[in-house]
Amino acid sequence: MARQGTIVFFDLETTGLRVASCHIAQLAASCENTIFNDYILPRIPFDHGATEVNGLTVSYGQLLLHGEPVRTVPLHSSLQSFIEYLGRFPGPVLLAAHNSRRYDGIVLKRVLEMCSLFEQFKKVVSGFVDTLPLSRKLHPQLDCFKQQHLVHYFLGGKYNAHNAVEDAKQLEELFNYWNPDNDVISEFTDWFYALK
């Protein structure tokens, strides 16, 4: 199916579930085998539940993934690199995430605004696609719409869920398997030009 522009799939791992205050610890994206992945040292502690899910902790000023140190970059640098990564794709670029409207898109937008980068971001990205309600529309017969369940149901596999790179790659694979048409995609897209 022909689409105008590019859909890039992204995911965040954060310090908790509070969209107004959590910090990003991992920002990753996938599009046509081109991966973006940065770890960011958060400035607030992880909620216990977040660490149980994503395996990330901070010890003595070092970000650890399952107890092993990972290289981090400053938040502002990561966001600038992310915008540059997105700018390499034919536009308009849409960013897709599972539960974007209630979590990933809101957190990313808040942090971009906090770093005074949202206007620059909007020059390369035209909106967010939420694959959670999209999956409900495409497959109403299902009783569970968690990404991990959808991957198992449609793709028959298991993966390292709650690692932002793996989540983004698997979401891209799911989306390509579903192959929704442009009208359905548009129905679950929050366009930036409509935000006033």
Rank of each mutant, 00 (worst) to 15 (best):
D143T: 13
E173G: 11
L174I: 14
R136P: 04
D143H: 14
G127C: 07
K169W: 00
L155S: 05
L171M: 12
H152L: 14
Q148L: 14
F145S: 00
E173M: 13
Q170K: 12
F128A: 11
K146Q: 11
S135R: 13
H149R: 06
K158S: 11
E172V: 01
L171A: 10
L134G: 06
S135T: 13
L134E: 09
A168K: 06
L132S: 08
L171G: 05
T131H: 04
E172W: 10
L155E: 05
K123T: 14
E173T: 14
F128C: 04
Y153P: 01
Q141E: 14
L132N: 00
A168R: 02
V165G: 07
F154E: 03
E172Y: 02
D130A: 08
Y153T: 12
Q141W: 05
L132R: 12
H162D: 05
F175L: 06
S126P: 07
Y153Q: 10
F154Y: 14
E172G: 06
A161G: 00
H152D: 03
H139R: 14
D167H: 04
L150I: 01
E173K: 14
H162A: 08
G156V: 11
D143C: 08
K123S: 11
Q148M: 04
Q141H: 15
K146E: 12
E166L: 06
C144F: 03
P140R: 10
Y153E: 10
H139G: 00
Q141N: 06
Y159A: 09
C144H: 02
L134Y: 08
L155C: 09
V129L: 15
K123V: 03
V125N: 02
R136S: 02
Q141L: 13
H162T: 10
V129M: 08
D143Q: 13
H162E: 10
R136H: 07
V125T: 03
F175E: 01
K123Q: 15
K146P: 06
H139A: 13
Y153L: 11
L132H: 12
L134V: 12
P140H: 04
V124K: 13
P140F: 08
E173P: 03
K123P: 05
K122G: 07
C144V: 06
Q170S: 09
L174G: 05
